[in-house]
């Protein structure tokens, strides 16, 4: 197993406040792992916030339980890894999974294309009612 040098996480209701908390955790992570270059921090943090915001904006509850968001971000020797999950969520609609950049007039729909441009790998998993984005960036 790869060594984890620093790790931060968040778990809570899928709301705008969660986005601010996750961003604060990212800032704290860089304080713990000050060797991570600015370019990697900037790109990775942007991808994590885009993935989390996608959940807050688009994830719908599968049943009566509200959607919860869970983020686990780790710094490894040559890699940054984030697992961004939506608990109690329905499977995403195909329309919400479009990763192509829309035209310049569009006011939304750039999030996934942006994520793909920012990280080394993007993986989506659905298991037991949980949707998880796994983002990695080689450093």
């Amino acid at each position: 197993m790869t060594d984890v040098i620093a790790r931060r996480g968040f778990h809570g209701p899928s709301t705008g406040e969660a986005i601010e908390s996750i961003h604060n955790e990212l800032d704290a992570l860089w304080d713990d792992a000050s060797f991570v270059p600015d370019m990697d921090r900037m790109t990775f943090a942007t991808a994590v916030i885009e993935a989390a915001a996608n959940i807050v904006q688009h994830a719908l509850p599968a049943a009566e339980k509200p959607v919860e968001i869970d983020v686990d971000i780790s710094v490894r020797p040559s890699r940054l890894v984030a697992r961004v999950s939506a608990f109690n969520a329905r499977e995403p609609f195909a329309d919400d999974m479009q990763a192509s950049m829309p035209d310049s007039e569009a006011e939304s729909g750039r999030g996934l294309a942006l994520i793909e441009a920012l990280v080394t790998t993007v993986t989506f998993e659905r298991q037991d009612g949980t949707n998880t984005w796994i983002l990695t960036r080689n450093t």
């Binding site: 942007t46 885009e50 915001a53 006011e107 939304s108 999030g111």
Partner: peptide, 16 residues
């Protein structure tokens, strides 16, 4: 120091 695609979308809406 930070803008995501929602922020960008707002700027585009404001430009329009």
């Amino acid at each position: 120091n930070f803008m995501d695609s929602s922020g960008l979308g707002a700027l585009i809406g404001c430009l329009k």
